[in-house]
Each structure stands twice: as structure tokens, then as C-alpha cells.
Simulated assay, not measured.
Amino acid sequence: MTTYLVPLVLIGVLTSAGVYLLLERNLTRMLLGLLLISNAINLLILNAGGPSGNPPVRGRTSGTETTTADPLAQAMILTAIVITMGVAAFVLALTYRSYRINTIEEVGNDPEDTRVSQLSGKEDDEQEDRLVPDAARDTDLPDELDALPGYEGSR
């Protein structure tokens, strides 16, 4: 089987551009990056599907082709296109909703995540001490937080 270099370079360029756009803070650029990565994956599946050939229908021929085309790659690409359009519609709806609420399209830092990361930096020593298990509490019974509602201890 002969592998052509041009489709592989195109797949690499689309993937790298898609990852670059996906790492941006702008939601529209994230959507475009997602679409570029999806198209790169579709080209990769098509390239891995093998050479073109006769249609995969019994008794049909296409010119002078001697092999039959693999229908699995084409079916996977069609499925991937439908899934990509569904995810793109979802991300576009999230972008529209975010723009309507905040009137900006940039994704900012979550204040709660920032607060937790600042607290965890200050309390590293205290947290290491708390991670040591207490031998007196080590039982086979579930802890208070692990118990299901209605749990009444051992029966």
C-alpha cells in the first residue's frame, strides 16, 4: 500500500491549527478549532481506509478498478460528520448563551477555582498532615460521607 505525503501533511496542519484555536479563550475560535480537528480526523480515516475502488455493491464496477472500496471508512466518516455537527451546534448554543448573559465572548477564570487554588497553596503543610489515615477510624463500615441515605449502621 502506498502512503502519500500530501494528505498526511494536510492532516498535521489541520490538527495543529485546530489545537492552537482550541486553546484560545474565545469561544468562536474554540468552535473553529473543534471543526478543524474533526475535519483532520475525517481525512485521517479516509486516508487509512485504503485506495478507492469499485462500489461495495455486488455486481457493480467502476471503470477499470479491480479492488472493492472499503465501505467502513466511509460510514465512519458520515457518522463523525453528524456527531461533529451536533457538538458544533451545542457549542454554538453555549457561545450564544454566554454572550447574551455576559455580553463578552471570552472565557474568564472561574473565581471559585482561583480561590481554591490560592487556598491550597497556603495550606499545603496542613493538608499533608490531614492526609495521614487515622487507624482508629479504619473500619469496614462506610464513613459518614460514604453512607447512603437511610443507612442505620450494621443490621
Results as ranks from 00 to 15, higher is better:
S52C: 06
T28K: 07
A69P: 00
S52T: 11
T79R: 01
E65R: 00
L72R: 10
G53N: 08
R58Q: 11
A40R: 00
A73R: 01
I101M: 13
A88L: 02
R29Y: 08
R97N: 02
S16C: 15
T103N: 05
T66S: 06
E65K: 00
A88K: 01
A75E: 07
Y96I: 10
L92F: 09
E105M: 09
L43A: 10
M30C: 08
G49M: 04
L35S: 13
A88V: 05
A93C: 05
L35G: 07
I37V: 14
T61M: 14
L46W: 12
G53Y: 10
G86H: 08
I81V: 14
V82C: 01
A40D: 01
I81T: 07
D70Q: 09
G18F: 12
I77L: 13
V107Q: 06
L44S: 09
L32D: 10
V87P: 05
Y20K: 08
A75W: 03
Y96K: 13
V82N: 12
A89R: 02
S98M: 13
M30K: 05
P56D: 04
A73V: 02
Y20H: 14
I77V: 15
R60G: 07
I81G: 04
L35V: 12
Q74R: 04
S98W: 13
R58F: 13
G53I: 04
R25N: 08
A40Y: 04
T95E: 10
L43Q: 04
A69E: 12
T68I: 06
T66W: 03
P71H: 05
P55G: 03
I104D: 15
Y20N: 11
